[in-house]
Each structure stands twice: as C-alpha cells, then as structure tokens.
Nucleic acid binder design. Structure first.
Length: 804
DNA sequence: TCCAAGAGACTTTTT
DNA sequence: GTCTCTTGGA
C-alpha cells in the first residue's frame, strides 16, 4: 500500500516530497490536511525516517490530536497488510487494537506534533535552565504558564501600584497589548523604548522591564515568552541549537500564513541552524515543508504576518517562476464546496489586492444558490436563523444537527441565537467565549496545583490563600506581601514561616497556619499520586467542595459539576499521554483553546466565531450579522489592510460550507444595553456575484438592494442604459425617479473622507471612511468620545458642518 | 473581615 | 445585558 494512492498530481508531489524546502499553497478544501498526514506517513513508512526526528506544527491542539489519530490509522492499516496480509477492516478487533498500540508506542508517541506554543513549552522544559537572560533573570523547569488574565493583573499592579500611574491614561489592557506586540516582534524593553517616541514609550518600556522581572520572580512565562525565550536560547547557545537542529530533520508547518516573526525565527533557527536560509544548502536528509493560504490569514491582530508565507520562495526556495519551481506546489482543486459557493468565494476574495496568485477550481456540481436574508433586528434575525434551521431539518431527515454551523464575527452575538435555539429545543454547542479553564472554580483549583509545583508562583498563591475563606483578609495579606518585598524573599517563605505568621498574622494567624499545613500535606502526596487524584485531594482537603455544598445554590451545584469535569479532563489526559504528570496536564490546560475541547460526537448545532471556524467544514453554514461596522468590524473601516483581513475572514466563513450557505443581516441592532441602531448590509454582500445569490429580502431594500448593488458595478454609461431598461421610460423620467428616491430627509450630498458634519444627537464628527457609491453609499463617522458610527447619509439626521 | 449593591466598562478575533 | 471592580456598612 502506498500513501500516494488516490491523490491528484499536485497532492502527490507534496506527499512524495523527500528532502529540501517545499511551499504548499493550499486553497480552502483542497485536501491539505490529507497531504500533511500522508506525507508524515510516507516519510516514516517509505523513507524510513525515525518519527522522533519529525516536528509538525499545527494551528490548534485539536488539529494535532486529529493528525496523530489519522496517522495511527494510516500506519496501522499498512501494517495490517504487511503483517497479516489482509485489509485492516477484516482483522479481529483484538488484532486491530494490538496494531494500534504498537503504532502508538513506536511512532505517535515519538512524534513532536502540536501548536508552536505547546511544542516550544516542551522544549523549554528540557533547556530553560540553560537560558541566559540579558538582565540575569532566571527560570526553572517548574515554570508556570500565565494566561491573559494573569498577565493583565500583573501589569495592572505594576502600572497602578508600583509606578503609581493613572490607569485611565495607561490602560493596563493597552499596555499589555503593546508589550505582547513587542514580544511577538522579538523586542526587549530597550528596543521597545527606541521604537516608541516620547514619555509614553519610556513608561511602557519601563512597565515591560518590570513585568519581565515580575514574571521571573514568579518563575512564570506568558504565552509570548513560550516563543520568545526559545528564540533567544537558540540564538545564544550554539550547542543547544545544534542539538535541536540535528534532532528535527523534517519540519512541517501548517497554516503558515498565520505565523508571526518570532515563530518564523524559530523555524529558521531549527531548519537552517541559525544561518541565512538563502545561503543554507545542506538539505541532505532534511526538509522544511510549509502549508498555507495567504487568503486565509486572519490573525494579524496577534502579529501574524502572511508576507512570511509569500517570502518562503525567497528564503528557502529556488526562486524559479511558479510553473518551473521545484520548491512550490499549488493545491487548487476544491473538493469541499459546491461550485456556486466556491465561485462566490473566489469573487469575494478577488476584491483584495494583497494576494498570492492562486485560483480555486470547483470539482462539484453548482448546487443551490446562496440565500441572503434580511431581518428587522437582532432578535428577528435569531428567530429567522432558527426558523431556517428547522426548515432544513424538516425537509431532510438525513440531516444531523451537527452538520449545521452558525458563524458570527463576535462572541457576544451568540446570546440571542442561543435564546431562540433554547425556545425551539434545538441542541447546540457554543464554542469559544469563556474557556472551560477560565471559569472561576477551575482557575482556583488550577492555581492550587500551579503553586504546589512552583512555590515561587506568588500570583497563584495570592489567589488561593483565602479561597475558600479562611479568615485571611486584605490587611494581613498586604502585611505579608510587604514583608516579602522588604526581605527580598518569595511570599511563600514568609507565609510558611510560623514565627513570621505569629508576629504578622494577628487575628488571621490561625487561618494562615491552617493553610500552610494544607499545602505541606498536599505537596507530600504530589509525587505519588496521578494528576486526577491530586486534583481530587485539593478539591476536598482545601474545603472547596464543602463550601460549595454549604452554599446550596444552583450556581454552586454547577461549579461542583465543573470540578468533576476537571477531574475527568485529567483522567483523559493521563489516558492519552501515558506517563503524563501534573505539570504536563497544567500545560495542556494553559494552552488549550475552547475548540480543542469541542465534543463533536454528539449531534448539536455549532455556534462559533468565524475565527474559531478556521480549518473546519460543515454541510450547512449560516453567517449572521453581515452588517457594516459589525462585519467588517468598525475598527477595520478606516484601514484598508484591516478591511482586507476582514474580507479574508469572510472568505474563510464562506469556504467552510459544503452544501448550502445562508447570509443574514439585520436593519437594526442593539449592541449592548442601550438603543438599537440602524445597521447597513455588509460591504461583502455586494461583492458576491448576483447570479449565485437568492435574495429573500422582505420589505424595503429587497429587490432594490440587489438591483443597486448590481448597478454599482456598472460603468456610468451602462448605468444610464440600465435605468432606461429597468424603468422602461424616457431617460429624463428615469433620472427624475432616481432623484426622487435619493432625496431623503437630508441632502443627497456626496460625502468624502475628511468632511465635517453635524448629527442631531451625536454632534460634530469627521467622516473617516466611505463605502459603496451612489444610492448605496454609506459613511463611517467619528464623533468625539465614541466609536465610529456607520451612517446612511440618506436617512441619518446629518448636515454638513460649517465653521462660519 | 466579609458581603451586598452599585458603578462602570465592555465587544473584535486567540495561543 | 453581563461581568468585574469598588465602595460602604455590618
């Protein structure tokens, strides 16, 4: 059996690739996951590569798990034929299991497959003690991984407590963002200071400096450090770099368009041993294989840079023209979507300027047209979405709830849709939003565990010292913290010193001693027990469950269930990672996304953001909230590059659909709490080809919208002809009619970027962006003190602002 | 030291 | 509408 069977020519070239660099430009639904898995199987089975020499980077942990699973099946099937001389599915179950176990032990267990963060966290567990920090900071292998909330609270403390700054002027969130961005670019505080002019830059870089020290004092790393520290380590230590360079002979990266500079640097260091990739030519027994699609790059907000993908040929490749290049393969045949959906996606993405030359060819029948549905507001939209789902289900018995996905731009949009689904008793699953591991009770218990492993972790210690309540109050804690600062020792050293506690603890001394006793007891059993039992112990001995039981509310009951779920997660982890310890479990918890835990086995409608949907596919896709300012997001409106990213996001959404696609938008939407505001149809709707769209649009806007969108694409001369035909009358009459329609409550002035206007309720504002033209023109206006508003100049109560 | 009530921010997207 | 943080009173 060959892993090249049943593949098209391009896929064969990708899978059969042995040594050297290869860029696989893989459009949506072109079978890239298949190419990746088959290639790994081919490397192992055909080229005899030792699995421990392969490093494969996936975009989510779930993708990593699935890839391992598929690989196991592929290799077990092959083994079945070689060893038993018969196909896999004719083997007895016991023989199947035996083969799977053997493959697991010999292959899957040895492979390094995972996200950048998971893989390099693992590398740091080996080598972090050899890292030499420019400032002399140190970490040990027991380091904690801090999530966004931990990072933010550390930064907040530095800004407000240490530096005594006004959090209004130095919003911890923005400062956090600036620091994260610097780390993603590989900058240290000095470099950030050079980059940012003036006082503000000085303060932010000083916060960065102190934040780094605070992390080191806690023996903790944030997400960005998991990539930045390995880069610095591999740069500074030739020996360690040499080791990993020799170890990973075959490097594969999926979703290469969403790598950032730091991640690219990691790949470069590992593959080219720190040399300039253009000059690197020792490809003997070595390869780098990256897969991506610039049109699906949707993570620039976390510093992803798709020009890295576009630069691969210059970095590693032979720089030959596409057709002649031996280092480039394009997978351009789409096996997923109907021709209609695909042509719509192609037409949409053609509006972007920054692209790699690529087409996506349909292999399937046209299928149904795309349906466009307009609703009055977000509540009717939710009802209409659910109505559509019920109709689909009623007309097709085969259809499973799990075949349907509702996609939206922001997590907040799920709420109304959930309410409608509940009303109609349709089973559903929301992916994203609050992560399981971010729930309060889960974070509490995880903090206990983190602290048990890493006693320097003061952030975790502070979280649990009085959770559940032990009568240790703010004042006491402040006294202990001050003492630890003065003595320059970790907080735990103060807390665990009975003398210190008796003199500082006051009324809380009893609670403190009790807490110390608890921690000492728990750390004793830490070594002997598997993770799941340690968790059980923490939950019980800390008094956490008893407090929940005493509370006796539905909410407390829910929290108890979640804690049980945490134990189950640990059990599952132990099962999947034989020999996995608590440290490993905490790591997987810190790096897990919500998608990773999505249980696909049950039949439920999936609700998630467009971002989360990347890499997935559904028979039926419903996209809700297709409105200016929501999707595309108002933050992208005055920036052409961001707008292109939103368009790519839309492209991702459209290409998730296999059979049917529905697009919903509302005329009014309540964003939060306050008033409903008028909403305009998304710019992207007008960019889809008319012939593939069926507009089932009630009321105003319906036919007129489709018609005017069509008009928008015609030249001026054509437009006049078109009007003649449409209105069937004299040209003069036609333009009269049009003029009449255009004269709304305000003037039909042509607005341009930079114009000033007055709005009856918002006051004076500046036009920052315009969309469309003619009848469908809409404008984005920035009013002082509020976010940009999207207005329809024909309806909004506005007039030009004159300064005299 | 703890709790309830009220204020205020928040909505882009996530490893 | 919902979550988090602050504040004042017991």
């Amino acid at each position: 059996m060959s892993f090249l069977n049943g593949l098209n020519d391009a896929q064969k070239k990708a899978v059969g690739h042995h040594t050297g660099p290869l860029l696989v430009v893989a459009g949506a639904g072109s079978g890239k996951t298949r190419a990746l898995t088959h290639r790994i199987a081919h490397l192992i089975a055909h080229h005899g590569i030792d699995p421990s020499k392969i490093l494969a980077v996936t975009f989510t942990n779930k993708a990593a798990r699935e890839m391992k699973e598929r690989l196991e099946v592929l290799l077990a099937q092959r083994l079945a034929e070689n060893q038993f001389g018969q196909p896999w599915n004719t083997l007895a179950v016991i023989d199947q299991r035996q083969l799977r176990t053997r493959i697991y032990g010999e292959v899957t267990k040895e492979l390094w497959i995972g996200t950048f963060h998971a893989l390099f966290a693992r590398l740091l567990r080996f080598d972090i003690d050899k890292f030499r920090d420019p400032e002399g900071l140190t970490w040990t292998r027991q380091f904690s991984i801090y999530d966004e909330a931990d990072a933010k609270s550390l930064i907040k403390e530095i800004v407000t407590q240490e530096l005594q700054l006004d959090p209004k002027r130095f919003d911890p969130k923005k400062v956090r963002w600036a620091i994260s961005n610097a780390k993603n670019k590989g900058w240290m505080p000095e470099e950030l200071e050079n980059e940012q002019e003036g006082q503000r830059g000085k303060i932010i870089s000083e916060t960065y400096r102190r934040y780094r020290r605070a992390l080191a004092a806690n023996n903790a790393l944030d997400f960005d450090d998991l990539l930045l520290l390995p880069v610095q380590l591999l740069q500074q230590n030739d020996q360690i770099r040499g080791y990993w360079h020799n170890r990973f002979r075959h490097v594969l990266v999926d979703e290469y368009q969403d790598t950032n500079r730091t991640q690219y640097e990691l790949i470069r260091l590992l593959v080219a041993d720190g040399h300039n990739p253009e000059k690197f030519d020792n490809w003997q027994g070595r390869s780098v294989f990256v897969v991506g699609d610039a049109d699906q790059s949707i993570y620039s907000f976390r510093a992803a840079d798709f020009t890295i993908l576009m630069g691969f040929q210059d970095d590693f490749g032979d720089k030959a023209p596409d057709q002649k290049s031996s280092t480039l393969v394009k997978l351009e045949e789409n096996y997923r979507s109907t021709a209609t959906i695909l042509e719509a996606a192609n037409a949409l993405i053609a509006h972007n300027t920054e692209r790699i030359d690529k087409v996506l060819r349909p292999t399937r029948n046209p299928g149904d047209p795309i349906k466009l549905i307009r609703c009055d507001d977000e509540i009717t939209e939710a009802e209409a979405v659910v109505h559509q789902i019920r109709m689909l289900k009623a007309s097709n018995e085969e259809l499973d709830w799990g075949d349907i996905a509702v996609l939206y731009r922001t997590n907040a949009q799920s709420r109304v849709i959930e309410e409608s689904l509940v009303r109609w008793r349709i089973p559903y699953l929301v992916v994203g939003g609050l992560r399981f591991y971010d729930r309060r009770e889960i974070k509490d218990i995880l903090s206990y565990l983190r602290f048990l492993i890493n006693p320097s972790d003061t952030v975790s210690l502070l979280r649990v010292i009085n959770t559940p309540k032990r009568g240790i109050g703010k004042t006491t804690i402040q006294r202990l913290v001050d003492a630890s600062h003065q003595l320059g020792i970790p907080l735990w050293d103060v807390v665990s010193d009975a003398e210190a506690v008796r003199s500082l603890g006051g009324r809380s001394a009893k609670g403190l001693l009790q807490f110390c006793e608890l921690i000492k007891q728990l750390s004793l059993s830490l070594q002997e027990l598997p993770p799941s039992e340690t968790i059980q112990q923490v939950i019980e001995k800390s008094g956490y469950v008893s407090e929940l039981i005493a509370e006796a509310t539905d909410e407390a009951e829910e929290r108890r269930r979640n804690l049980q779920e945490l134990i189950n997660a640990a059990l599952q982890y132990q099962e999947e990672n034989d020999g996995g310890d608590l440290q490993g479990f905490l790591e997987s918890a810190a790096l897990a996304s919500d998608v990773d835990n999505k249980d696909t086995s049950r039949s439920r409608v999936t609700l998630m953001t467009l971002h989360s949907s990347k890499g997935l596919e559904f028979s039926i896709v419903i996209m809700a909230g297709m409105e200016q300012g929501l999707f595309p997001s108002y933050r992208s409106l005055d920036n052409p590059a961001s707008l292109e990213e939103e368009r790519r996001l839309c492209y991702v959404g459209v290409t998730r659909a296999k059979e049917k696609l529905f697009l919903f938008h509302a005329s009014e939407r309540r964003l939060w709490g306050g008033m409903r505001e008028p909403a305009l149809p998304s710019l992207f709707l007008g960019e889809l080809p008319d012939e593939h769209i069926q507009g089932d649009i009630p009321g105003r806007g319906g036919a007129a919208l489709r018609h005017s969108q069509h008009l928008n694409r015609l030249t001026r001369v054509d437009r006049e002809d078109q009007q003649k035909v449409q209105l069937g009358g004299e040209p003069g009459l036609a333009s009269n009619a049009v003029r009449k329609r255009n004269s709304g409550p305000t003037s039909n002035k042509k607005w341009a970027v930079g114009d000033k206007l007055v709005h009856t309720s918002f006051g004076v504002g500046d036009v920052t962006h315009t969309f469309g033209n003619g009848e469908r023109m809409s404008i984005a206006v920035k009013f002082p003190g509020m976010g940009p508003k999207i207005l329809d100049p024909r309806l909004a109560p506005i007039k030009p602002h004159t300064t005299d």
